[in-house]
């Protein structure tokens, strides 16, 4: 890591063909990055900047009127009860995903990597990963069916286990809908992070475990004293990536409940869609977009800070 960092700073083509003093040559050397700069600037940065402009207007596509309303949309944001629900739902998404997809996955990876058979380790990693490869539309629809009272298998399963009295219409009940969606998401995503933790664990030198064993440490003690600290970097990154992802959730909510019942499962992404594209209120939708921007930016800064600090420590 430290090595790459130094390389960036000194990285220059051997012989440095174009001294920066020659403007034409400098311009010509930009050909390598011009396409990327252009397409990323045009389709990623520009619309995101533009979003802030749109968020201070009220637009009506049918009349074509655009009215400047200043911070009115942001004031509405602060008093919109559905935004509060959505913020909480996104937060719950993040917290539960950290619990299952970071800590749960860590333990699962530790268990798998403690197996003796190479083949079985590979098999479990691959099997658990399968749902992550499948589109969230498919898994969302699948769980939508699984949760259905008539054809779903969850109710049948619960009745079979004597838990029939706990059964309910998971997606139709405003107290459980978002959690049913989050549960699907854990099912889909835990294999992905398990795989990443597995790889991180494999990079730990075996001698460390051997030495610990010599000292009489049991497996749990070894995981606690070696595996956990040695995968701390991965854990930190995973937490940040998971939180960022949790605030961009859209697909599964759209497919499974579209935010219902009674907006109880709205997340910021679906509420933005509902406002902008169903209720024809693009200005307000853009303000919701700014909120998403704020949260994901915080995560991004956290990530940068974390990487920097790690580099310094390394």
């Amino acid at each position: 890591m430290a090595q790459s960092a130094t390389r960036i700073r000194t990285g220059r083509a051997p012989g440095a063909p174009h001294p920066i003093g020659q403007p034409l040559a400098a311009l010509w050397s930009m050909r390598w990055v011009a396409v990327a700069l252009g397409i990323v600037g045009w389709f990623v940065y520009y619309p995101i900047l533009n979003n802030f402009l749109v968020s201070t207007t009220q637009q009506d596509i049918f009349t074509g009127e655009v009215t400047q309303v200043g911070l009115e949309n942001y004031r509405r944001l602060a008093s919109d009860p559905v935004v509060a629900t959505a913020m909480w739902n996104n937060t719950a998404y993040a917290l539960l995903s950290i619990l299952f997809q970071v800590f749960g996955a860590f333990w699962l990876a530790a268990i798998i990597e403690g197996l003796q058979s190479d083949r079985w380790r590979a098999i479990w990693r691959a099997v658990y990963f399968i749902p992550s490869a499948i589109s969230t539309t498919v898994t969302g629809l699948l769980f939508y069916f699984i949760y259905q009272p008539q054809i779903g298998i969850l109710d049948g399963l619960m009745t079979g286990m004597g838990l029939g009295h706990l059964s309910r219409v998971w997606l139709g009940d405003s107290t459980t809908a978002i959690y049913a969606i989050i549960a699907m998401s854990q099912w889909q995503g835990f294999g992905y992070s398990t795989l990443l933790f597995s790889v991180a664990i494999q990079k730990i030198p075996q001698e460390l475990f051997d030495a610990a064993r010599m000292d009489g440490a049991g497996p749990l003690r070894q995981i606690w004293a070696i595996t956990l600290p040695m995968t701390r970097e991965m854990t930190g990154m995973m937490i940040i990536v998971t939180v960022t992802g949790a605030f961009q959730v859209f697909n599964e909510v759209m497919v499974m409940t579209a935010g219902g019942p009674n907006n109880s499962s709205q997340v910021l992404g679906t509420w933005l869609f509902e406002q902008g594209f169903n209720q024809n209120d693009m200005g307000y939708a853009a303000a919701i977009g700014s909120l998403v921007f704020g949260v994901t930016m915080l995560c991004g800064v956290a990530q940068l800070w974390y990487t920097r600090r790690r580099r310094v420590e390394a």
Binding site: V40, I48, N50, N51, L268, L272, A285, G289, T296
Partner: peptide, 24 residues
């Protein structure tokens, strides 16, 4: 700067770009 600009794009969420992209 160029590195920062291009790699910085990773931090930007598609959700935020949605509304202006429609018009574009």
């Amino acid at each position: 700067l160029v590195v920062g600009f291009i790699l910085g794009g990773m931090m930007l969420s598609p959700t935020v770009a949605l509304v202006p992209l429609v018009r574009m």
